[in-house]
């Protein structure tokens, strides 16, 4: 189990940074949970099982322009802003 559980990689995917002690605590917990949920492998399953109502109901709304929140309201929630823009750290790295 520990071989397939690459916590480093998962943290990268989930944008989480964990201290070594936190990793050391989490790893056995996660491995135990993954082994526990693995009991579903006991069940014989087929793709032909009827779809769930919730799977069928994922309807898209009509592709129609509708009013949304005004920019001023949206910007009020932003942690950092400049004029009418949300500010973020520089995305393009310098060479």
């Amino acid at each position: 189990m520990s071989r397939e559980f690459d916590l480093e990689h998962l943290c990268q995917l989930a944008h989480l940074y964990l201290e070594p002690e936190e990793k050391a605590r989490l790893r056995p917990q996660l491995e135990k949970i993954v082994a526990w949920v693995g009991q579903l492998k006991e069940l014989p399953l087929s793709e032909s099982l009827p779809e769930l109502e919730v799977e069928r109901r994922l309807a898209l709304r009509p592709d129609k322009v509708e009013p949304s929140f005004p920019l001023k309201v949206v910007l009020e929630s932003a942690p950092e802003k400049d004029d009418c823009f949300i500010k973020v750290p520089k995305v393009i790295e310098e060479k």
């Binding site: 989480l16 996660l30 949970i33």
Partner: peptide, 15 residues
């Protein structure tokens, strides 16, 4: 964090 990591694992390529 535990649940995010668990979900990330269950949805990751290969698993």
């Amino acid at each position: 964090k535990r649940r995010i990591l668990l979900g990330t694992f269950a949805l990751s390529a290969g698993y």
